[in-house]
Each structure stands twice: as structure tokens, then as C-alpha cells.
Simulated assay, not measured.
Amino acid sequence: MTTAADSSDRVPRIRLPRERRGQQLLDVAERLFADHGFNDTSMEEVARAAGVTRTVVYGHYATKDAIFIACLRRARADLEHRLSELIQANGQMFMGEAFERVIEVFFQILEQDPGRWAMLYSTGPGLSEDVVNHVTTLRFDTVNGIADVIGHCVTEMEPDRINAYAHAVSGVTEQLGNWWLANPAASRGRVVALCRDFIMDGFSPWTDSRRGHESPSEPHSAASTHIAFSNAAGEPGPGRAVDRVGEL
């Protein structure tokens, strides 16, 4: 007799090559993790949403931790690929330009796919030690990508300073991303500018008397190689706030 628990094993499915099926399962799982959080997403729900049996899902990913980690790896690989393209496409860059372009990469991802951003910065309860360790390792890999951009721009900077600054840029960008999710009326250009100004100048307009009363919102000089980025029509972004970031 067939029970309700076996229902997912009777779902009709379309046969796909193994590699394509694996990517489809990641697409489905990533959306479920983003919408419902890690704890409230099951392998059976992944199977149902993908239109396959649980056996197929387990044939690709042995556990929920495994498919979650695979989603994280894919999202991080996309981020790191975009960072590496900055060096390959732009040659030598000034520091101000480099920071702005790194920041732009992060906030483009957030604007285009807030759920993926939530995946990239998963920290909530319910994650196993193995998942947490993978999250930490992947974050450090991204920091190394930022360090590569900094080192490419300022070849004379000492390695420990490059590494420390890369961690600082990553942390500031992550927290401003969370702020943007809570304040979606701000445009991407505005958020990029705020992040750039903080990284490049910090509180110096208020603490360095030599700068007088210059407004921190005024454009930088040409020496700072300021490039104003904005989305196509200055629309506010991101399109939707992810309410369950802390649960991922």
C-alpha cells in the first residue's frame, strides 16, 4: 500500500542529463532556502518543487547540508568571478576606482537577487557545524578576491595591510547591504556612494580640521577617480527585502 510519505516518489518527471538535473536542483533549492529559510526547507520539498523523486535528489546531494553548501559554492563562485573580471577587464586602476567597482559588484548582486545575497551571508540558527565552517571558508575566499583587487591597484602595500583592508571592505559592504534591505527606497547609486565614502574617507570630514566644513556628500576630486554609478533609471532597489536573512 502507498502511504502519504511516499507521495513524492510518484511525481512524474522529465528526464534530464545528470549535470543539468544537478543545476536544476540547485536553482530550486536556492529559491526555497531564500524564501523559507534553512530550517523550514526539506529535501522532500526540493523534490516536489523540482518535479522529481526524493531518490533523484539524494542521488545528487546526500543531505540537506550538502545541497545547501552546493548552493553557497555556486553563489560565491559567481561573486568571485565578477571580482576577478575587474582586474582582467580594467588593467591598472586607481584605488578609489577599484573600491567603487568592488562595491558595485556586491550591490548589483543584492539588487538583482536579494535571495542569493541572503545565501551568501547565511549565519542563522539551525546550521550544522559543517555548514558554518563552509560558510566561513567561502567568505574568506571572497575576501581573498577583494585582496587581489587591492594588491593589483597598490603594488607597494604590505600584505598584512592588504588582507586587513580586504576584510574591512567585505564587512562594511555586508552590513550596508543589510541596511539597504531594510531601507529599499535608497537607490543602488546612493548605497554605493555611501559605502565608497565610508571606506575612502570614513569620519575624516568631521575629524580633520584641514578639510574645513566640506560636505562628505560632495563629489571627490579627479585624483580620487570617482565614478558615479547608478541603476538604469535611478529606481530604488532592491526589488524586495528578504525578511528571513537571519534564518538562513
Rank of each mutant, 00 (worst) to 15 (best):
T137A: 14
G202P: 03
H220D: 11
E111F: 11
A47W: 01
V149F: 07
S187Y: 03
P125K: 12
G151Q: 08
V102T: 15
P114T: 04
G124T: 03
N144P: 01
S204G: 06
F198W: 15
D35L: 07
A223D: 14
T3S: 11
S230R: 15
R211K: 14
E100K: 13
M93W: 08
D113V: 03
N163T: 13
M200I: 15
A89L: 15
R54V: 09
F203R: 07
L79Y: 04
G151R: 06
V245N: 00
G202H: 06
M157L: 13
G51P: 04
I103N: 00
D27S: 15
D9C: 09
A29G: 12
V192N: 03
H213W: 12
A168S: 10
T142E: 13
V135E: 00
N163M: 08
H60T: 05
V192W: 01
M119V: 12
A49T: 02
V46R: 01
K64P: 07
R101P: 01
D65P: 09
W206N: 08
A70W: 02
H226P: 08
R161W: 03
H213P: 02
H36M: 09
I87H: 01
A186S: 12
T63C: 09
A228L: 08
C153Y: 02
I227L: 13
G115T: 06
S221L: 07
L127S: 02
P159Y: 06
A62E: 14
A50Y: 02
E129G: 12
L72T: 04
I150V: 15
V172T: 13
I199K: 00
R244Y: 04
A66W: 04
T225P: 01
R139S: 07
V149D: 00
Q175F: 11
